[in-house]
Amino acid sequence: MPAVSPSRRQVLRLYKQLIKNANQFNDYNFREYFLRRARNTFKENKSVQDAAKLQSLFAEGQRDLGILKRQSIISQMYTFDKLVVEPLHKHGFKPST
């Protein structure tokens, strides 16, 4: 099968999805890490042109997205107190009016 490199649109969509799902983590440290990692990895590979390399990076990104989707749900199921550096009422939880 010839390597079909993903379109610009597909890559941007993957990036957006990774950021969105990383933001779903209830745990502060994991959330910050996966946001940082998504940003850095995409920035690092910004100028990759090789089709096969792009293909493998894209597949890896999709695997990571699957992990983020599953693990962010687990992180929402088992929650802990917010950290001392974390403002309350910002992510997901809204104060009852």
């Binding site: 983590f25 996966f34 107190d81 950290l83 001392v84 550096v85 309350l88």
Partner: peptide, 18 residues
């Protein structure tokens, strides 16, 4: 802000990566 302490004891153990 929250109340849970910042974890800075990585030599004792580290959080399990998701």
């Amino acid at each position: 802000f929250g109340t849970r302490p910042i974890y800075l004891d990585m030599q004792a153990t580290t959080p399990t990566d998701p």
